[in-house]
Design a protein around this nucleic acid. Structure first.
Lengths: 232, 232
DNA sequence: CGGCGATATCAAGATTCTATCAAGATGGCT
DNA sequence: AGCCATCTTGATAGAATCTTGATATCGCCG
């Protein structure tokens, strides 16, 4: 997942710079705009994951922006404002803003509220597809996160070293991996001169995962070099 | 759709009364609790659509409540607190709160923020079905919210650590969980090098939940790595 | 086609990891 | 203080896995 993108719409340059700095430091990608027109263009064109919006802009009221954006997008909007009156807050929130911070505010609080807003957005987006972290070859499926391997939908039981070796191959699928490389990744740097280990475990992987272990279609030998997992 | 239900957890009676009045006037159904224990009972039993939570409760820190509830539920939580320090806000929001209001606050703002929170929840619930806090495997049922485990409908009594371990497995059902991971989640980060703990408690979970503890069907060992709860 | 180094396969022994029991330690409660 | 349930810790038997060596097979090269 790429870092979330945040659009900052704020006319006062020092504050904008400050926000950019704080957000970048947290790893977010930051887009800047200094008036309503530019802000709308940014939101429309770049589709940020979150909007930080100053209410008092030179060309148009921030409220307008909220209403306009809400006609077509549910992107989280956090309002930043120097006006602390309750009415301003109520109006903004009712118009569709997700949060309202009164200047001056602490960076820590801002970042915490940004996290909350992104958390909400993530829940909505993730509830649909059950993310796929798995890799496939032939009728075999390798899920690195849950350490589960299936073949024809049936679960295949692998030992720790078998799985670690397979995982290394999967993570470098298509590439030729030397014995040394595999040994270092799976057994550790001290085992680098024992190519025999790899052979024994490749054999059992083939027995468990290949249709015909003596004529492997995916777990391929590269004579004199090492092994390669063919990604189909 | 019935009127949304809001749980108010607040020990100071005048404030609680005031909140009830304000919320009722808006058409919400209001549940009251005056301490953490009662609050948790209300949330577990009545499943409100939103929680207003005072941080300073007589029996337990409000933060605890947030964390506990977040183990099994995504119900919106708005924190009300007399403490205005930024750190308190950050901690609460990071723990899983959705908003934080510092007393004294205006009713109008509170109601606006309540609407925002309910708007979020509506978006989420419309896309998926009402959240299920129970998990099943074999004839065992684990309810994370009420911490009740049954087998063949009969309640099984688990100790705190047994349940916490089982809950961690349930929340990550299907995945292989390393000893380190389980130890960190259940015993805390300092216990990360004591895999023996996990073994002892897995043994007692199996004895209580598996048909044949020596041939487990669900609470599976992954040699050299950790354990896994097989979701059938 | 034959030789040779590299690779595959198998299985026994060594090692590591796991299950289980129970005694001691701890902590809450009356 | 004493009881009870629970947790921690140690000891030990048992199981699974890994290592290792012996032997068979493959595939490249002249």
């Amino acid at each position: 997942m790429n870092p979330p993108t945040i659009a900052v719409i704020e006319d006062e340059t020092p504050i904008r710079r400050f926000l950019r700095a704080s957000l970048s430091a947290e790893g977010y990608r930051v887009l800047e705009a200094e008036d309503a027109a530019g802000g709308l263009r940014t939101i429309t064109g770049q589709r940020p994951d979150l909007v930080l919006l100053d209410l008092a802009l030179p060309d148009r009221d921030g409220l307008d922006i909220i209403r306009t954006v809400r006609e077509w997008s549910a992107v989280p909007i956090i309002v930043l404002s120097a006006r602390g009156e309750e009415n301003s807050k109520i109006t903004s929130l009712n118009a569709g803003a997700d949060d309202y911070l009164t200047k001056p505010f602490g960076v820590g609080e801002l970042l915490a509220r940004v996290r909350v807003a992104l958390r909400h957005a993530a829940r909505i987006n993730s509830s649909s597809e059950p993310e796929e972290t798995a890799f496939r070859f032939g009728d075999v499926r390798v899920d690195l996160a849950s350490r589960i391997v299936t073949r024809d939908g049936e679960e295949v039981k692998l030992t720790k070293l078998e799985f670690d070796l397979l995982a290394t191959l999967v993570r470098n699928a298509g590439k030729v991996l030397t014995h040394r490389f595999l040994l270092e990744k799976v057994w550790g740097p001290q085992a680098v001169d024992e190519p025999h280990y790899v052979r024994v475990f490749m054999a059992s992987l083939r027995k468990k995962l290949e249709e015909n272990a003596s004529r492997p279609r995916y777990l391929l030998t590269e004579q004199g070099v090492g092994y390669r997992l063919k990604s189909d």
